[in-house]
Simulated scan of single mutants.
Amino acid sequence: MDHSAKSDDNKAKYEVTKDSNGVQQVLLRNPRGASVKVSLFGGQVVSWKKENGEELLFTSSKANFKPPMAVRGGIPICFPQFGNRGILEQHGFARNRMWIIDENPPPLHPNDSKGKSFVDLLFTPSEEDLKRWNHSFEFRLRVALDFDGYLTMISRVRNINCKPFSFSIAYHTYFSISDISEVRVEGLETLDYLDNLQQKERFTEQGDALTFESEIDRVYLSSEDVIAVLDHEKKQTFVIRKEGLPDVGKLKFPS
Protein backbone atom coordinates (compact mmCIF):
# COMPACT_ATOMS: atom_id res chain seq x y z
CA MET A 1 0.00 0.00 0.00
CA ASP A 2 1.66 3.18 -1.23
CA HIS A 3 1.20 6.35 0.82
CA SER A 4 3.39 8.67 -1.23
CA ALA A 5 2.09 12.10 -2.14
CA LYS A 6 2.40 12.87 -5.85
CA SER A 7 2.18 16.64 -5.77
CA ASP A 8 3.98 17.73 -2.60
CA ASP A 9 7.58 16.73 -1.90
CA ASN A 10 7.18 17.85 1.71
CA LYS A 11 4.60 15.16 2.48
CA ALA A 12 5.41 11.72 3.81
CA LYS A 13 6.45 9.07 1.28
CA TYR A 14 6.37 5.44 2.32
CA GLU A 15 4.98 2.00 1.63
CA VAL A 16 3.12 -0.13 4.18
CA THR A 17 3.74 -3.89 4.26
CA LYS A 18 3.32 -6.67 6.82
CA ASP A 19 5.86 -8.98 8.42
CA SER A 20 5.44 -12.74 8.85
CA ASN A 21 3.36 -12.18 12.01
CA GLY A 22 0.98 -9.77 10.32
CA VAL A 23 2.45 -6.68 11.99
CA GLN A 24 2.48 -3.62 9.76
CA GLN A 25 5.82 -2.20 8.71
CA VAL A 26 6.65 1.06 6.98
CA LEU A 27 9.20 0.93 4.17
CA LEU A 28 11.08 4.11 3.29
CA ARG A 29 13.21 4.32 0.14
CA ASN A 30 15.35 7.05 -1.33
CA PRO A 31 16.03 7.64 -5.05
CA ARG A 32 19.40 5.87 -4.83
CA GLY A 33 17.97 2.61 -3.49
CA ALA A 34 18.76 2.88 0.22
CA SER A 35 15.93 1.83 2.52
CA VAL A 36 14.66 1.86 6.09
CA LYS A 37 12.00 -0.42 7.53
CA VAL A 38 10.04 0.53 10.66
CA SER A 39 7.74 -1.81 12.56
CA LEU A 40 4.56 -0.43 14.09
CA PHE A 41 5.23 -2.76 16.98
CA GLY A 42 7.39 -0.61 19.23
CA GLY A 43 7.93 2.06 16.57
CA GLN A 44 11.16 0.19 16.00
CA VAL A 45 13.51 0.58 13.04
CA VAL A 46 14.26 -3.04 12.13
CA SER A 47 16.31 -2.48 8.96
CA TRP A 48 18.54 0.22 7.47
CA LYS A 49 20.17 -0.68 4.18
CA LYS A 50 22.68 1.06 1.97
CA GLU A 51 21.96 1.50 -1.74
CA ASN A 52 23.90 -1.73 -2.46
CA GLY A 53 21.60 -3.67 -0.13
CA GLU A 54 24.09 -4.01 2.74
CA GLU A 55 22.34 -4.11 6.12
CA LEU A 56 23.66 -1.57 8.64
CA LEU A 57 21.76 -2.82 11.69
CA PHE A 58 22.19 -6.05 13.62
CA THR A 59 19.29 -8.29 14.58
CA SER A 60 19.85 -11.37 16.71
CA SER A 61 19.25 -14.72 15.04
CA LYS A 62 17.19 -15.55 18.14
CA ALA A 63 15.05 -12.41 17.89
CA ASN A 64 11.32 -12.97 18.34
CA PHE A 65 9.27 -10.70 16.08
CA LYS A 66 5.95 -11.85 17.51
CA PRO A 67 4.29 -9.38 19.92
CA PRO A 68 4.37 -8.78 22.82
CA MET A 69 8.07 -9.70 22.99
CA ALA A 70 10.48 -6.83 22.30
CA VAL A 71 12.70 -7.41 19.27
CA ARG A 72 16.42 -7.77 20.06
CA GLY A 73 18.00 -5.80 17.26
CA GLY A 74 17.50 -2.76 15.07
CA ILE A 75 16.74 0.41 17.05
CA PRO A 76 14.37 -0.19 19.98
CA ILE A 77 12.78 2.89 21.57
CA CYS A 78 13.39 3.00 25.33
CA PHE A 79 10.65 5.11 26.91
CA PRO A 80 9.56 6.38 29.42
CA GLN A 81 12.37 4.67 31.30
CA PHE A 82 15.88 3.67 30.31
CA GLY A 83 17.30 0.47 31.74
CA ASN A 84 16.10 -0.39 35.23
CA ARG A 85 16.35 3.17 36.52
CA GLY A 86 12.75 3.47 37.69
CA ILE A 87 9.60 1.62 38.66
CA LEU A 88 8.81 0.15 35.22
CA GLU A 89 10.11 -2.89 33.40
CA GLN A 90 13.50 -2.77 31.68
CA HIS A 91 13.56 0.11 29.14
CA GLY A 92 9.91 1.03 29.71
CA PHE A 93 6.87 -0.06 27.72
CA ALA A 94 6.94 1.90 24.45
CA ARG A 95 9.09 -0.72 22.73
CA ASN A 96 6.46 -3.45 23.10
CA ARG A 97 3.30 -1.51 22.28
CA MET A 98 1.59 -0.94 18.95
CA TRP A 99 2.08 2.48 17.37
CA ILE A 100 -0.01 4.11 14.64
CA ILE A 101 0.87 6.05 11.50
CA ASP A 102 0.04 9.74 11.42
CA GLU A 103 -1.59 10.04 7.99
CA ASN A 104 -1.36 13.85 8.02
CA PRO A 105 1.93 14.76 9.71
CA PRO A 106 3.55 18.20 9.81
CA PRO A 107 5.47 18.68 6.53
CA LEU A 108 9.20 18.75 6.11
CA HIS A 109 10.83 22.13 5.78
CA PRO A 110 11.13 23.03 2.06
CA ASN A 111 14.92 23.23 2.39
CA ASP A 112 15.02 19.73 3.88
CA SER A 113 12.68 17.83 1.58
CA LYS A 114 14.67 16.98 -1.56
CA GLY A 115 14.99 13.23 -1.99
CA LYS A 116 13.85 12.55 1.58
CA SER A 117 11.17 10.07 2.59
CA PHE A 118 9.74 9.98 6.10
CA VAL A 119 6.96 8.71 8.30
CA ASP A 120 5.54 9.93 11.61
CA LEU A 121 4.44 7.33 14.15
CA LEU A 122 2.34 8.08 17.23
CA PHE A 123 2.03 6.33 20.56
CA THR A 124 -0.27 7.15 23.48
CA PRO A 125 -0.57 5.12 26.70
CA SER A 126 -3.42 2.68 27.22
CA GLU A 127 -5.53 2.54 30.38
CA GLU A 128 -3.34 -0.32 31.59
CA ASP A 129 -0.21 1.75 30.96
CA LEU A 130 -1.69 4.65 32.93
CA LYS A 131 -2.32 2.37 35.90
CA ARG A 132 1.40 1.65 36.06
CA TRP A 133 2.71 5.07 35.00
CA ASN A 134 0.04 7.71 35.53
CA HIS A 135 1.09 10.37 33.02
CA SER A 136 -0.82 11.20 29.83
CA PHE A 137 1.30 11.93 26.78
CA GLU A 138 1.58 11.67 23.03
CA PHE A 139 4.89 10.40 21.66
CA ARG A 140 5.61 11.39 18.05
CA LEU A 141 8.49 9.65 16.31
CA ARG A 142 9.64 10.85 12.91
CA VAL A 143 11.85 8.46 10.96
CA ALA A 144 13.43 9.95 7.83
CA LEU A 145 15.77 8.68 5.12
CA ASP A 146 17.50 11.32 3.03
CA PHE A 147 18.94 11.35 -0.49
CA ASP A 148 22.39 10.23 0.69
CA GLY A 149 21.04 7.37 2.81
CA TYR A 150 21.37 9.08 6.19
CA LEU A 151 18.86 8.02 8.83
CA THR A 152 17.30 10.64 11.11
CA MET A 153 15.05 9.94 14.10
CA ILE A 154 13.25 12.76 15.90
CA SER A 155 11.19 12.23 19.05
CA ARG A 156 8.69 14.69 20.47
CA VAL A 157 6.79 14.00 23.69
CA ARG A 158 3.69 16.12 24.30
CA ASN A 159 2.23 16.43 27.78
CA ILE A 160 -1.52 16.00 27.33
CA ASN A 161 -2.87 16.97 30.75
CA CYS A 162 -0.16 19.51 31.70
CA LYS A 163 0.73 17.61 34.88
CA PRO A 164 4.55 17.76 35.05
CA PHE A 165 6.44 14.49 34.71
CA SER A 166 9.97 13.30 34.08
CA PHE A 167 11.05 10.59 31.67
CA SER A 168 14.09 9.13 30.00
CA ILE A 169 14.44 8.11 26.37
CA ALA A 170 17.02 6.28 24.29
CA TYR A 171 17.53 4.86 20.82
CA HIS A 172 19.02 1.49 21.77
CA THR A 173 20.84 1.00 18.46
CA TYR A 174 22.35 -2.33 17.38
CA PHE A 175 24.93 -1.61 14.67
CA SER A 176 26.07 -4.34 12.32
CA ILE A 177 29.84 -4.58 12.67
CA SER A 178 32.65 -6.98 11.82
CA ASP A 179 35.02 -8.38 14.46
CA ILE A 180 34.57 -6.35 17.65
CA SER A 181 38.35 -6.18 18.02
CA GLU A 182 38.41 -4.09 14.83
CA VAL A 183 35.99 -1.48 16.19
CA ARG A 184 36.72 1.73 18.07
CA VAL A 185 34.52 4.57 19.32
CA GLU A 186 35.74 8.16 19.15
CA GLY A 187 34.28 11.19 20.89
CA LEU A 188 34.15 9.83 24.44
CA GLU A 189 37.55 11.08 25.57
CA THR A 190 37.71 12.42 29.17
CA LEU A 191 33.99 11.79 29.74
CA ASP A 192 32.61 10.39 32.97
CA TYR A 193 30.66 7.16 32.72
CA LEU A 194 28.65 4.81 34.91
CA ASP A 195 29.92 1.24 34.81
CA ASN A 196 27.02 -1.18 35.02
CA LEU A 197 29.43 -4.05 35.63
CA GLN A 198 30.58 -2.35 38.84
CA GLN A 199 27.28 -1.34 40.46
CA LYS A 200 27.02 1.85 38.37
CA GLU A 201 30.20 3.25 39.88
CA ARG A 202 31.39 6.45 38.21
CA PHE A 203 34.70 6.58 36.32
CA THR A 204 36.43 8.85 33.78
CA GLU A 205 37.40 7.64 30.31
CA GLN A 206 41.18 7.78 29.99
CA GLY A 207 41.88 6.60 26.44
CA ASP A 208 41.88 8.54 23.18
CA ALA A 209 39.31 6.09 21.80
CA LEU A 210 37.28 3.26 23.23
CA THR A 211 38.26 -0.23 22.08
CA PHE A 212 36.82 -3.59 23.10
CA GLU A 213 38.90 -6.32 24.69
CA SER A 214 36.45 -7.61 27.31
CA GLU A 215 32.84 -7.15 28.35
CA ILE A 216 31.72 -3.50 28.56
CA ASP A 217 28.42 -2.05 29.79
CA ARG A 218 28.60 1.71 30.34
CA VAL A 219 26.58 4.91 30.18
CA TYR A 220 28.67 7.94 29.18
CA LEU A 221 27.48 11.22 30.69
CA SER A 222 27.17 14.67 29.08
CA SER A 223 28.68 13.53 25.81
CA GLU A 224 29.52 15.60 22.77
CA ASP A 225 26.91 15.88 20.01
CA VAL A 226 28.99 13.82 17.56
CA ILE A 227 30.25 10.29 18.21
CA ALA A 228 31.96 8.06 15.64
CA VAL A 229 32.00 4.26 15.54
CA LEU A 230 34.83 3.09 13.29
CA ASP A 231 34.89 -0.43 11.87
CA HIS A 232 38.38 -0.93 10.43
CA GLU A 233 37.68 -4.33 8.89
CA LYS A 234 34.64 -3.08 6.97
CA LYS A 235 36.29 0.30 6.32
CA GLN A 236 33.05 1.86 7.51
CA THR A 237 32.23 4.63 9.99
CA PHE A 238 28.94 5.33 11.72
CA VAL A 239 28.69 9.02 12.64
CA ILE A 240 26.09 9.62 15.35
CA ARG A 241 24.80 13.17 15.72
CA LYS A 242 22.40 14.08 18.49
CA GLU A 243 20.46 17.09 19.71
CA GLY A 244 18.74 17.42 23.07
CA LEU A 245 20.01 14.12 24.46
CA PRO A 246 22.75 14.63 27.06
CA ASP A 247 24.26 11.16 27.41
CA VAL A 248 25.46 8.20 25.37
CA GLY A 249 23.74 5.18 26.83
CA LYS A 250 24.58 2.58 26.61
CA LEU A 251 27.72 1.11 25.12
CA LYS A 252 27.64 -2.60 25.67
CA PHE A 253 29.70 -5.56 24.51
CA PRO A 254 28.66 -8.29 24.10
CA SER A 255 25.15 -7.11 23.18
Rank of each mutant, 00 (worst) to 15 (best):
Q90K: 04
V46N: 00
N30Q: 06
F137W: 09
I240D: 13
L122E: 12
F65Y: 10
Y150W: 06
K37I: 09
Q236A: 11
K114R: 03
V16N: 01
C162E: 13
P246S: 15
L145G: 03
D129I: 00
R85I: 07
T173N: 01
C78T: 15
S136M: 14
E224I: 04
K49N: 13
G244Q: 10
K18I: 01
F123P: 00
L130H: 13
A170P: 00
K49D: 10
D9V: 06
F139Y: 11
C162I: 05
Q198T: 13
K11T: 01
V248G: 01
T190W: 05
D146G: 09
L210V: 11
F167Q: 05
S168N: 15
S136G: 09
D179L: 01
D247K: 02
G249M: 00
K235E: 13
D9Q: 05
F147K: 15
L27S: 06
P106S: 14
P107M: 02
P125Q: 14
H135A: 10
F41N: 03
S47D: 13
I101F: 01
D217Y: 01
I180S: 03
N30I: 02
F93L: 13
H172V: 02
E224A: 11
S181M: 03
N104Q: 12
P67N: 04
L27E: 08
R29Y: 11
T124E: 14
K116H: 04
P68E: 11
V157K: 08
K116C: 07
V229Q: 07
E205I: 02
S60R: 07
Y193H: 06
I77V: 15
L27M: 09
L141K: 00
G33T: 11
K163I: 08
E128F: 06
K62D: 09
D217G: 04
V36A: 13
G244Y: 07
